[in-house]
C-alpha cells in the first residue's frame, strides 16, 4: 500500500497523468482513504516540486504537467469525496490580489479544498479589492482566502483587510493568507486570522477557521 502511494507521488511529480489516474484507482480499490492519498502522495509531490522549482532543477512546464496529473488523481477521487462529505463543510472565497497573476498555487489550493468537501468560490487572479468585498457581501463565505506570490503585491493583502474593516465586514469572515513572500509574522501584523505555508496547511487551517477553532495555523 505504501508502495502504491509512493508510485502515485512519483507519477504526479513526473507529470504522468494516466499512471496517476490508474494508481489512484488502485489505491481506492485497496481501500485507502482519500485523505490519506492526499496527505501522503499528492501533498508531498507538490512540496517536492516546489523545492525543485526553487532550486532550478525543474521548469514551469514540469509543474504544468504535474498539476495536470494531480488534477487527474483528484478527478478519480471526486465522487468519493463528495459522497463521504455529503453536505458542504463550508464556503471559501479565494483569489489572488490585484496585480498578481499567479494561479498554479491558487488552483491547487482550490482543488484541495474542493476535494476536502468545501464549496469554493474562485474569484480568479488579479482580483481588485472591490470584487473581494462584493463576493463577501453576496456569498457570505466562512473564509476568505487571499494569495500573493509577489513581494510587490504584498501590501494589497493589508489593503484588503483594511477594506473589509471599512465595509464593516471584517467580523463576518475569517481571512487566511498565503503565497511565497507571506510569513506568519506578516499575517499577524496585518491582523489576518491564519497563515498557511502549503496546500495541506491551507486545508487544515481552513478547517479550523470554519469550525471557529484557534488552530495551529492561527496568527
Amino acid at each position: 500500500m505504501e508502495k502504491l502511494l509512493i508510485e502515485l507521488q512519483q507519477a504526479i511529480e513526473n507529470g504522468e497523468t494516466q499512471i496517476a489516474m490508474n494508481k489512484t484507482k488502485e489505491a481506492l480499490n485497496y481501500g485507502i482513504r482519500t485523505d490519506k492519498i492526499i496527505q501522503t502522495a499528492i501533498n508531498p509531490a507538490f512540496k517536492d516540486l516546489g523545492q525543485k522549482m526553487f532550486d532550478g532543477e525543474i521548469y514551469v512546464t514540469d509543474v504544468l504537467m504535474a498539476s495536470r496529473a494531480a488534477h487527474a488523481a483528484m478527478y478519480v477521487m471526486e465522487p468519493i469525496l463528495s459522497r463521504s462529505t455529503g453536505t458542504s463543510k463550508g464556503i471559501v472565497a479565494i483569489g489572488t490580489v490585484a496585480g498578481d497573476l499567479h494561479d498554479i498555487g491558487k488552483n491547487l489550493v482550490i482543488m484541495m479544498l474542493q476535494g476536502s468537501g468545501y464549496t469554493v468560490i474562485d474569484l480568479g487572479i488579479d482580483v481588485p479589492v472591490e470584487t473581494f468585498i462584493e463576493a463577501v457581501r453576496m456569498h457570505k463565505p466562512d473564509v476568505l482566502a487571499l494569495s500573493s506570490l509577489l513581494t510587490t503585491t504584498l501590501p494589497e493583502l493589508d489593503n484588503m483587510i483594511d477594506a473589509l474593516e471599512a465595509a464593516g465586514l471584517r467580523t463576518q469572515v475569517k481571512v487566511i493568507i498565503g503565497g511565497a513572500p507571506v510569513t506568519a509574522e506578516y499575517a499577524s501584523r496585518i491582523k489576518a486570522d491564519a497563515y498557511a505555508n502549503d496546500l495541506f496547511e491551507a486545508t487544515e487551517a481552513v478547517a479550523d477557521l470554519v469550525k471557529n477553532r484557534i488552530g495551529k495555523y492561527a496568527v
Binding site: 507529470g15 497523468t17 494516466q18 489516474m21 504544468l64 504537467m65 495536470r68 488534477h71 478527478y75
Partner: peptide, 12 residues
C-alpha cells in the same frame, strides 16, 4: 500538447 491524449485528456 505536451502529452499524448489519454483518458483524462478527453475528460479535461
Amino acid at each position: 500538447l505536451m502529452w499524448e491524449p489519454e483518458e483524462f485528456f478527453w475528460i479535461e
